[in-house]
Design a binder for these strands. Structure first.
Length: 261
DNA sequence: GCAAAATGTCAAG
DNA sequence: TTGACCTTTTGCA
């Protein structure tokens, strides 16, 4: 379930559980050069967009989960390694396992900085500058739906947030970037920050009105969490029109053709 | 038991 | 624009 909120949540959890401790690092699968950081003290874990950075002195473990990468973790002794286990951390405070990432590599600090330099503003970063994204959007005649997913425009937004964000603001996914008003963008940007922060808190993406009244104790039914994402062929929650789906740049785009005309 | 799908990215043509 | 890649889970026989 990796959009930006997932990575920021992971960074926080790993920071809390492992930072300041020497970590036993291994790669049962053998596809990660664990010996480069094995036994080093973990200084800090941070996230930018969908990227995770774990600093072991001057060696940075860079992880990108891709479409189905996943961390699992626990306290006490780790379980016997099963399946394709790319990276395992073991410490007195517990363990964490990583499977299926697109990237899991050791970088020099300058290389890690270069990764971030290629990305647009991350709404989850304190002081993130939404106008930087808008400048790129305004210069493009590409559909807004595609621009929102472009990590060089905006870092951390994936297929769920883009579909839901467009719906919440009644925006036509195919509107060219250059036709988006500054005032519209300002509203969209601040809404995106709120949505993604809620995502970090709850660990999942909830964009329906239930998301507006954040009450952790009150569980939202999974089915109600989205307006349009993966609701192809079902009636729009607002006006009953059937939700449409179309593949755009290789990804499934969902929208309500009347609400978002 | 096997194919398809999944909140992603990159490189080739 | 397409295919390749990383792995697990789901759905259908």
């Amino acid at each position: 379930m990796p959009e930006g909120h997932t990575l920021h949540r992971l960074a926080r959890e790993q920071q809390r559980q492992f930072a300041g401790l020497p970590i036993e690092v291994s790669s049962p699968q053998g596809r990660f050069e664990a010996q480069l950081v094995d036994g080093r003290v973990l200084d800090s874990v941070s996230a930018y967009g969908k990227h995770l950075f774990a600093a072991f002195g001057d060696r940075i473990v860079h992880v990108h989960l891709g479409l189905y990468g996943k961390f699992t973790s626990g306290i006490g002794e780790p379980p016997e390694p099963r399946g394709a286990l790319r990276m395992r951390w073991t410490a007195p405070s517990g363990w964490t396992d990583l499977r299926g990432p697109t990237a899991c590599e050791v970088l020099a600090p300058s290389e890690a900085e270069a990764v971030v330099a290629r990305l647009g503003p991350d709404p989850l970063q304190r002081g993130a500058d939404g106008t930087r994204a808008f400048e790129r959007i305004r210069r493009s005649r590409a559909p807004l739906a595609g621009l929102l997913m472009d990590q060089q425009v905006l870092a951390g937004v994936g297929n769920v947030y883009r579909a839901e964000l467009l719906f919440r603001h009644r925006l036509d996914p195919y509107r060219p970037g250059r036709e988006v008003e500054a005032a519209t963008w300002a509203t969209v940007w601040s809404d995106l920050i709120a949505l993604m922060r809620a995502g970090v808190r709850s660990g999942r993406i909830v964009t329906t009105e239930a998301a507006d009244r954040v009450r952790p104790s009150r569980r939202v039914v999974r089915d109600d969490a989205h307006y349009v994402y993966r609701r192809h062929g079902l009636p729009c929650r607002i006006d009953g029109t059937l939700i449409q789906m179309q593949v755009l740049a290789g990804r499934k785009l969902y929208w309500c053709p009347t609400c978002q005309a």
